[in-house]
Structures are given as structure tokens and as C-alpha cells.
């Protein structure tokens, strides 16, 4: 390794932590240059950060993604872009993971939160600056698709993507809001998803037959269709009128249903459910109504937040507005 190369590496390692930002790896250091000769990070960012002053709370994540309440710190958000933000902590903190949830007070009231992958740890630096990019485990934690149940075909049930206990802990802190996402009817035995069909009120079987009757308009006779069939044509057994025409002379009526399996009969069928998981068959009204819970996070929209702070939104270099 040449001396110049050694100097570059040495310079990088010794550079202050807050300079190790998004685009540090894009900086090309020429021969004889030190890190202090390089442009400041905000000057080289594709999306320059805007200065803000907003009270915030930083909640670090433990390795299991639960909130680390011991290392929770109040802070002031000092800059913000569409890709990341910087904060000034009220006291030093030693993070166990690189992921934190930042809860920001909105200027008009209320709060928003975001997940940050820390790039700029405060360490022992006197300014207590913490910076990072939107992303990482904390960002995934707040992603809407990870906060609402989805149907898992292998389990035949609705499942939350993350453990409910974990989300409940974040809800207790106020970062997440619990809400009823849906109500579904499930098997009373195993809570699996059922399929529904009209079936026998006694045994639930869908193998039923229904009486077919004929109402002859002219004489008001109502009888089973088989009694009307005579010599290949329809003849009313009461008034002996022949060659009956459907619609003009008679109408079909549907009578009682009879079950092939248990021979039970009734005029109406019940809505019967059968669990797809444990195969339990039960009347629909016995189904367990399950409340599916989802969680909602007031996620930070950087552009809207900057606008509400009275700061112009950062403009990407090279865009038409620039």
C-alpha cells in the first residue's frame, strides 16, 4: 500500500463521526488532500437537508425490535431531508442496535414518527449529534404492511406479520395505534377459516333435494310435478286440462327440501360452515366472530413536515425545479 493510500484510510477513520453520512463513500480524495479539505456533507448530498427545530423523542430498538425504554432520550430534530434526518440528543446514549424510532412533534400539534438507521452515533462527541437514514428495522416496524394482518394460506388463518405482543408494546408507548382491521367468522374449535354453503338444518349436508310442484292457474291446483306428467305431456290432475304451457297456464313452485344423508326435511336450508382446517361442520350462527386487530403509525412525510415548518422542500439537483 502506497503512503498516499494509507493517508486516505487514516483520514477517513479519524474523521468525525458526523461526516460519515450518506454519501461519504462517494467522496474521492485526491493525493495530498485530508478529510478537512473535502466539502461538508450537506454540500455533497443529492438531497440536501434543511435545518429545522422540532422536539423529538428517540426510542432505540432492542435486538428483538421492542422499545429500549432505558435508552430513550429527548432530542431536537435539527435537519431533515427525504432520505434522512439529524437530531441533537439531550444526553449521550450508547445504542445496542443501529435502529431507532424517532417521534417528532408536529408544529401544528400532534406527532409523527419514523424509523431511522443510525449512521452518525453521538458517542462521546460533545454536540450529541445523531444522524441517520430512513430505513432499517425501525422503518420496517412502522411499515403499514407489517402492521395489518394478512391471510396465510398455509395456516388457513389471518396472521399479523410481527408478534402481537411486540406491536402492543409500541402501542402502549403511543407510537402505534390499535384499531379493528376486520371481523371474520372462524371455526369455533380451531379458529380456522371456514367455507360456507346452504345445507341441511340437521346434519349440515349439502346433498339435498327439493320438491318441485306445479301451480295450475286456472283451477288453483298445486301438486307435485310428477303428478302432472301423463303420457309425455302435462295434464292437471284436478281439472284434466291438457298441454299445459309454463308461464301461461302454470308456474313451478319449490317446496320442501329433503336431505339425502339424514332424510330430514324443511322448507329452508341453513347456512352451514365447514372449517377448512379441522373439517368441523357447524351452523353459521355458531361461528366465532373474530376481531382482527391492526396497528397504525402516523408516519413522517418529510416534505409535508418541512412545509409545515415553513421551510422549502429540498430539491433534487438536476431536476426541472432546480
Amino acid at each position: 500500500m502506497s503512503p498516499a493510500t494509507e493517508e486516505q484510510v487514516l483520514t477517513l477513520e479519524e474523521s468525525p463521526p458526523n461526516s460519515r453520512d450518506t454519501f461519504v463513500d462517494l467522496i474521492v480524495i485526491g493525493d495530498g488532500e485530508t478529510i478537512h479539505d473535502m466539502p461538508a456533507p450537506h454540500a455533497v448530498r443529492a438531497n440536501p437537508r434543511r435545518g429545522i427545530q422540532a422536539p423529538a423523542v428517540v426510542i432505540p430498538l432492542l435486538p428483538d425490535c421492542s422499545p429500549d425504554l432505558v435508552r430513550r432520550r429527548h432530542a431536537i430534530a435539527v435537519d431533515l431531508s427525504v432520505e434522512g434526518m439529524g437530531l441533537k440528543l439531550e444526553s449521550p446514549v450508547d445504542l445496542l442496535t443501529q435502529d431507532v424510532v424517532v417521534v417528532l412533534d408536529k408544529p401544528g400539534g400532534g406527532f409523527v414518527c419514523t424509523g431511522l438507521a443510525v449512521c452518525d452515533e453521538p458517542g462521546e462527541t460533545p454536540d450529541l449529534h445523531l444522524g441517520g437514514r430512513f430505513g432499517g428495522a425501525a422503518h420496517d416496524l412502522l411499515d403499514p404492511k407489517n402492521l395489518t394482518p394478512s391471510f396465510v394460506a398455509s395456516q388457513l388463518a389471518y396472521v399479523l406479520p410481527q408478534p402481537a405482543a411486540l406491536l402492543e408494546r409500541w402501542a402502549e408507548l403511543g407510537v402505534l395505534e390499535r384499531f379493528t382491521w376486520d371481523r371474520v367468522h372462524v371455526c369455533p374449535r380451531c379458529e380456522g377459516m371456514p367455507s360456507f354453503r346452504r345445507g341441511c338444518q340437521a346434519c349440515g349436508s349439502a346433498r339435498v333435494t327439493q320438491d318441485r310442484l306445479i301451480h295450475h292457474y286456472a283451477c288453483a291446483h298445486v301438486g307435485f310435478a310428477a303428478d302432472f306428467e301423463s303420457g309425455g305431456e302435462l295434464v292437471c290432475p284436478k281439472c284434466r286440462t291438457r298441454r299445459l304451457v309454463v308461464g301461461a297456464d302454470f308456474e313451478h313452485l319449490r317446496g320442501r327440501q329433503t336431505c339425502f344423508d339424514c332424510h330430514w326435511s324443511a322448507p329452508e336450508l341453513d347456512l352451514v360452515a365447514q372449517c377448512l382446517r379441522c373439517q368441523l361442520r357447524f351452523p353459521c350462527h355458531q361461528a366465532l366472530e373474530l376481531e382482527l386487530v391492526g396497528y397504525h403509525a402516523h408516519r413522517l412525510d418529510p416534505l409535508a413536515f418541512l412545509a409545515s415548518c415553513g421551510r422549502a422542500a429540498p430539491v433534487r439537483p438536476g431536476s426541472a425545479a432546480n
Binding site: 310442484l213 288453483a220 298445486v222 313452485l253 324443511a266
Partner: peptide, 22 residues
Amino acid sequence: VLVLSRPERGGKSSAMNFALRY
């Protein structure tokens, strides 16, 4: 108690004849 229902009105006579079948 048996409940029979027909989708269209057919008159009281045929309604009672319908019941006679059951």
C-alpha cells in the same frame, strides 16, 4: 310449525292448496 314461501303471489286458493300437499 312449517313455513312455506312462494316468490310470487298466486292467490289465496293456491296458497292453501300448496299447504295441503304437506
